[in-house]
Design a protein around this nucleic acid. Sequence first.
DNA 1: CTTGAAGCTCTAGTCACTAGAGGTTGTAGA
DNA 2: TCTACAACCTCTAGTGACTAGAGCTTCAAG
Lengths: 138, 138
Amino acid sequence: MFSIGQLSKQTGVKVPTIRYYEQVGLLVSAGRTEGNQRRYDKDGLERLGFIRHARDLGFSIEAITALIDLQQHPDRSCQQATEIAQHQLTDVREKLLRLKALETELVRIADGCDGEGNSDNCYVLASLADHQHCRGEH
Amino acid sequence: MFSIGQLSKQTGVKVPTIRYYEQVGLLVSAGRTEGNQRRYDKDGLERLGFIRHARDLGFSIEAITALIDLQQHPDRSCQQATEIAQHQLTDVREKLLRLKALETELVRIADGCDGEGNSDNCYVLASLADHQHCRGEH
DNA sequence: CTTGAAGCTCTAGTCACTAGAGGTTGTAGA
DNA sequence: TCTACAACCTCTAGTGACTAGAGCTTCAAG
Ligand SMILES: [Zn+2]
Ligand SMILES: [Zn+2]
Ligand SMILES: [Zn+2]
Ligand SMILES: [Zn+2]
């Protein structure tokens, strides 16, 4: 049996975050001591590892809840799992496209002024004031 | 003079968002009618355009506040403006790196299962359970 | 048995909005 | 001039995924 602190050390998830996961129904402790402290078993440790990894990959708490639910029922079809993963991939790709566009504009904007002048003829400020300066959309 | 709704239409910023910007000190109306409704002048319209554009480029409210402050003082050095822009660029690049790594892993994970099997031998679930499957860090 | 690290609950704060309730004002048409 | 009603007002609370802090209790080593 592990205390919440031991779980935290093993997984790299902070103690208040573990409590938060319990609050939203993602990870319930195996039980409590007489003094009301949480105790976890190997199952809890593995589940928190799963959560941690999925969060690192950007999955939402809601998605992780569904994934764990699926994991608890080994006989069910895993179709939903692939759907969730595909959706997450799509999401990441959309963000990538957006950020690439931003990077292009920001390079132009940030490099357009050396910071030596005054703000009334600063290319950074002028670019922000008028989207016409921009090469693309965003 | 423009009403808040007219400002909204011209800039594409939603009415409650404009009120929110006022609350955080970004954009104050030129005045009010006798009946307490906000009225804006051309200055306000331009400023909201600036805010909108900067937000689209991912600048934080705090950064935009500093940029507008700088814009109000044409005789000041624009060094801070370039710093803020550079910082934003760095930020975007970090996010890009992270997302690219995520994309790589997610392609592998999402394509590793066709969703036809059961969840007890699903590659998606197995990959999430164990970072060892991953090619890189994240 | 004492001490102090680690645990507990509860509330509130973060960021940039967004939604809704419940009331008031502006304006166009009759 | 009156009447509808769209648009406006303020205030509170909710979003996601935590994080911080106050004030208290418990566990375990020495
Ligand atoms: Zn400049
Ligand atoms: Zn632009
Ligand atoms: Zn599968
Ligand atoms: Zn991994």
